[in-house]
Simulated scan of single mutants.
Amino acid sequence: MSAAEPQPVTCRWCGAPDGEVVLDLGDQPAADHFPAVDDPGPDPVHPLRMWLCAACGLAQLAEDPTTPEEPRGAEPEALVAQARDAVARAHSAGLLPAGGTVTEFGSPHGGTWLELLAAVGLTGAAPGEPADVVVDCFGLMHAADQAAGLAERAAATAPGGTLLLQFHSLAAIVADGQWNALRHGHFAYYATPVLARMLEAIGFEVTHGFLFDLYGGTVLLAARRREVDGPRDIPSVTHLLEREAALGVTDTGGVGTLGKAAQRSAEALREHLVAAREAGRLVLGYAAASRAVPLLNRAQVGPELLPAVADAAPGKRGRRVPGVGVPIIVPDELVARRPDEVVLFVADMLAEMRRRLPDVEAAGGRWVVADPTLAVPAAGPVHEAAGPDGGGGGRPTG
């Protein structure tokens, strides 16, 4: 099904009409639409472009005519561990007052910090009541109207309260060539300097900045309503601002490198799978994640090169990857097929998968990471074989 002609873009934050497309992946299926395996298609496709506003510097999805479906994935252990770390660091910084209230703006991908926050003394705010702490973990990017989305979170923050915003840093996306972070339903891609200015525009100032290794670079900003005029020198924040500015994350030259990264990684994946097929090696995939969809479609990888991709999420069983028709199987079936290689589409899951599916390497297979750059990691430690329910890969989130 052909896509509609792209329309002129205006900024989702400041409304400016001036900007430039910095990454164009052409027509792509929606990354959250996993059809039934017996659905012959064709799957609907839509333009998938990243646009950089010349006025405010916000990188954003140029257009999105899709309807979100968001089948719940399996929450990687790396994400769970990072949440614990984030709450611990925020607590140590004095940002989580004992006896205070909290409101969480969740992500449609699942996961929550509420149990962790309850453990340090926070209780849920009453519906409609401002909270002492407002948490947004990968949620704001799903707001098509960024101005309205940020205003909603600010309104939920009580006077003197703290707004915590966590996001996958555009700096990491650019530095690591993570072009497949672009997907329908993810409307904004934040550079720390840009998000700091967005907060300043609504009367908030960033008071703390935390950087994590998750996804190559995840940032947690703490912000409060500005109480004094003029900028303050806050080392943790200044470091993040300077680090990202040096990477050119607010100009078209820096962000525009993602286009070449897309071409390189797609070609490398296809060449690798073609060579494996010619050599008679069986290659399967793991993690039918949203980021795998544009990579497989860009590389034109179907079942003839990748017979199946495994995933622990119940909502994806009996389905297939859109656009390319690769069927999704359960992890136990992947192990039973004794693949020579398993291509992992979420790099942060490597240690977890080696532990959960030790039979892959015990049978002589190896893991290959494509997230999106193709890499063959060194052999991992030997683990005991998994039990009857060991074919996991994260805890289901719904």
Rank of each mutant, 00 (worst) to 15 (best):
D39C: 02
G391L: 09
G124K: 14
T162W: 02
V45G: 00
R49H: 06
R264W: 08
A143S: 14
D389A: 14
I234W: 10
V219Y: 05
P381I: 14
S2I: 14
E384N: 11
G380Y: 11
P331H: 02
A196E: 07
L25H: 05
V135F: 01
D229T: 13
F105V: 03
P331A: 01
E341F: 04
G177R: 01
I234R: 12
A54T: 13
P307V: 04
P127V: 03
K316N: 02
T67C: 03
D136I: 04
D145E: 04
A312T: 05
A223V: 08
A54N: 07
G392K: 12
D43E: 11
A262E: 06
S236K: 02
V293R: 06
R298W: 11
Y190H: 15
V45L: 05
E5Y: 09
G15Y: 10
F345Y: 10
G209Y: 02
S107A: 08
T67L: 09
P42E: 05
D251T: 15
L357Q: 11
V194P: 12
G149L: 06
D145H: 08
M353Y: 00
T157F: 15
G41C: 04
V368R: 03
L163A: 06
A143K: 10
G380N: 07
F204V: 10
A155M: 06
E227W: 07
G110T: 01
A292V: 05
G121I: 15
L295F: 11
P322L: 03
P8E: 05
Q146H: 12
T207C: 13
R319M: 00
L282F: 11
V324E: 04
P235L: 05
I328H: 00
E75T: 11
E20K: 15
A119D: 13
W179F: 09
E63D: 12
M349Y: 08
A276M: 10
E341I: 03
E77L: 08
Y215H: 13
I173Q: 11
D389E: 15
H46D: 07
P388I: 15
V301C: 08
H208T: 15
F105N: 01
G106D: 15
R395H: 11
G365I: 06
R89T: 02
T257H: 09
G57L: 07
G325V: 00
W13F: 15
G139S: 15
A36C: 09
L273K: 05
G280K: 09
P303L: 03
T123E: 10
V293S: 08
L195H: 12
A3Y: 12
G19M: 09
P377A: 13
R338E: 07
G121P: 08
V134E: 00
T250K: 03
R243Q: 09
V343Q: 00
A172R: 00
P47L: 09
T238Y: 07
P29K: 05
L350N: 00
G161V: 03
Q178N: 12
V22E: 03
G325K: 02
D311E: 06
Y286Q: 04
A245I: 14
G256N: 12
V324F: 07
H91R: 14
H109F: 10
G19L: 10
G203C: 07
T252Y: 03
G391C: 12
A266N: 13
A4S: 15
R281W: 04
G139H: 00
R270N: 11
A292M: 10
W179Q: 02
G280Y: 08
G280H: 09
C137G: 12
G149R: 03
T157I: 12
A4Q: 13
G302P: 03
D389F: 13
H142A: 01
P231Q: 06
P76F: 01
